[in-house]
Amino acid sequence: MIVEISWLQLSLVSIFILVLLAISLYESLKLEKSILIGSFRTIAQLILVGYLIKAIFLNAEWYYVLPILVIMLLLASQTLIKRLKNPIRGTYIYALIAVSITSILTLIAIFTLIVNIPRWYDPQYLIPIAGMVIANGMNGATLAGERYKSELFLRLAEMEMLLSLGYNSRRASQTSRKQALIAALIPSINNMMVMGIVHLPGMMTGQILSGVMPDEAVKYQIVIVLSLTAAVSLTSWIFLNLLDKKFFTPNHQIRYDLINPSK
């Protein structure tokens, strides 16, 4: 049985906000406004989501669950594009395709092969796991997209050389794509290296706190960590391959205006 937190007790989290504010004030970080807004948003958004998910749990029907997933996909794709510096027009749809395909495939794999849930839309399983898959895929693809653009800029001479020798644009941008994928995957791979030793992941901690035995929580965590790393690679890979079309014309010419906007 889980120990419940009363609203009064919850209000004492303000201690942590005060610590944050104190350090910011003492060191003149000028982060007070962001800390207050951030803290308020965390509390408000989570309470709201808590009630929303509770309502969905109580009415566990696919027509309540599915729109939530669609909203998550749309917001994640928008965030992915927003986080790229100088986002390029028309790439939102690429982000949406990459995040959606990855999420659907990963969730199908998890819930048909590994975790057999009674109904595919069971919100208790589907929403938290979909949230993690979507968010991780989004973060990976953001890293990949950002790195890809800077690699293309750095490798202009190399690309011109390869195109001049008659290679196609896909081959010319291959090294940039490779570096971008590595940049996206390294945090997830590093994370796997220290998993359970340095890093006790949120979901496992949450399950243990909710009364699930650690050995069972660990099984879930293994599924999550490996599926998330796969999701990061797949989202980034799809996103990069779609993005590739933006930076070159069909005649295998570099779009200098997008890679180097100063030119």
């Binding site: 011109e160 020798l165 008659g166």
Partner: peptide
Amino acid sequence: PLLLRKEIAY
């Protein structure tokens, strides 16, 4: 362009 660039090198 891929053929042309083999013939005309820059």
